[in-house]
Design a protein around this nucleic acid. Structure first.
Lengths: 327, 327
DNA sequence: GTGTTCAATGAAAACGTTTTCACAACTTGT
DNA sequence: ACAAGTTGTGAAAACGTTTTCATTGAACAC
């Protein structure tokens, strides 16, 4: 049979209250503490966390809700979140929504039932815009995308500036017909597109933007179609790593040389981007920093529930490689 | 204040027992069930899962303990595990050990305290070999590496056969001086090395094997050193995706043409492996299948605790690309 | 000495469920 | 028409902790 705190108490010759105090933080004499610890070793006692949570109302659990853990951005963020969580003695429950609002709603309900300490959430635009400040019964930090202004803490990339810096770089290299292929569903992609358009306007260049589903296949299909046209762009900006991969595939099948026939630039400095010749110019997101900052905001929100909503905006870093070098 | 089952009971005009039965599976009249459901909607009741777990002793939680979620192999497995878990109404707690036995021990203890339903675990060799059949108080399935024979259910790749098939392919292409650079810590790498050595022996070729830490940097360093020697191999097999990446970097810095100066082959069919010219020959692991099979074994173990220990061995698929084509 | 404070402890309540037990009201088989 | 299930329900116990409340004894201030 399972050994409980009363078995430990009996062996140690004290009350269950004293055992609880000896194991947690409570005033106990050194002698008693040692007795209890000996009894714990003797019995092989392991506390039951469900009981502890029920009574103490501290779940010591944080929920991490992302679109898909296989997206390298979320993978890296997740690792940072977990490191911070376990360092603070908390567990992490991981959920993949596949950008499906129904699944988002389901997982948010689950989080309520778990009575989690807090949640880190990368919502779709529709869910983010639907969540008012008081919609959620637990502290929540949005990552990657922020929702209604002032409703929730968030940590995001300065997407517009990052996209603009790619345009700056391409213009400096002498490119003029700069196209942009952006994801159609996320608010992140929308911000990047806006930054791109604004930068193009600054240079008096006509923006050439298209939108598709933010995955490699859709991007490859659309890029192939676009680049087959006679008036194809001489440079192309992709709004995330998967789409960049699709674009590379398109250049291969069309036999286009990079950067001679087409310059390429994108987001997410994944390990392979410097392996495909001639190296891809990308915006590197501070992924670990995003996760760590999100946890910091979350902990501070838990500590001071009433404090004003905060939005942390981090800058991307342009990693310049051969794919944007003017022949 | 938080609304509990007694509030629902009061509103519905029934006892708490009836509410519990109406929400779960218990005999209740249709009329009462509707009343209860109406009361739940009216009160906004959300069950407290900690209380439920404490009383019912069903945690509905599975632990997933891997080395590092950023390793694409574990990322993919993790996604499959989570899909299966949530489909069965279970939550997933994710833990990263960084191959550190101390962290493994810590997380295993945590799993005990959580009273988890089961665990999917990718252990280091030292931990795996130290865990007897009765060491763990919860059903456990090992993935990627199996421990003591007959101690735990496991699902693994046929590593020896996979490595041998790479040798077969290289020999068929006419390569003779085939080197192997293997990870030094995992039992997986050891199996791959053994398969490599056995295959080489079959062809009466001298094995040329070296071991380093299984990461990109160490592999790059060692490969650079090795390939700088006058008697360097004409083909190189790497024991995982990260090491393959390191080897590619080494060829770039040394100015070696692939496959003319050096053929390359490795493991893990990651998306970038077909993007770096001329395409890398790799063994594709059935990652989703591994996760799904692990969950199947786990559920069946939970269902039938006494059944004999099972080991599922899956085959890799050789994806042949330009990096091993004989010039 | 006599209050007063404080540290250490135990008994018992509390946390929010599910499950057991008992029972009443129906069905069913004969 | 009667025994034997079966079904629906409520009261109360149980799950394994932490926390509250009360009590003891010792230390301290006057």
């Amino acid at each position: 049979m399972s050994v409980g705190i009363r078995d430990v108490a009996r062996v140690a010759g004290v009350s269950t209250a004293t055992v609880s105090r000896a194991l947690g933080r409570g005033p106990v004499s050194d002698a008693v503490r040692e007795q209890v610890e000996a009894a714990v070793r003797a019995t092989g006692y392991r506390p039951n966390l469900s009981a502890r949570r029920l009574r103490s109302k501290a779940a010591q659990t944080i929920g991490l809700i992302v679109a898909d853990i296989r997206n390298p951005f979320f993978t890296a963020v997740s690792r940072a979140v977990e490191d911070a969580a376990y360092a603070a003695g908390m567990r992490v429950i991981l959920c993949n929504t596949d950008e499906d609002p129904a699944r988002e709603a389901m997982y948010l309900r689950l989080m309520e039932e778990e009575r989690v300490t807090g949640v880190i959430f990368a919502p779709t635009k529709v869910t983010a815009d639907g969540l008012r400040a008081d919609s959620l019964s637990f502290p929540t930090v949005f990552i990657d995308r922020s929702g209604l202004p002032g409703a929730h803490d968030s940590v995001v990339l300065d997407n517009a500036a990052a996209a603009a810096s790619l345009v700056d770089h391409l213009v400096a290299q002498g490119f003029k017909r700069i196209g942009g292929l952006f994801g159609s569903t996320s608010s992140t992609a929308r911000e990047r597109q806006a930054g791109y358009a604004a930068a193009m306007a600054r240079y008096d260049l006509a923006p050439l933007a298209r939108s598709v589903a933010p995955n490699a296949t859709a991007a490859e299909t659309e890029a192939t179609r676009w680049l087959s046209q006679p008036d194809r762009p001489e440079a192309l900006i992709l709004s995330n790593g998967l789409m960049l991969m699709g674009a590379v595939r398109a250049t291969r099948t069309l036999g286009l040389a990079v950067p001679k026939d087409l310059a390429l630039a994108g987001f997410d400095n994944e390990p392979w981007t410097d392996l495909v010749e001639p190296g891809l110019t990308v915006i590197e997101q501070p992924v670990a920093e995003i996760g760590a900052q999100a946890m910091r905001l979350l902990f501070e929100r838990i500590e001071h529930p009433g404090q004003p909503v905060r939005k942390v905006t981090l800058s991307g870093r342009a990693v310049l490689r051969g794919s944007t070098r003017r022949g």
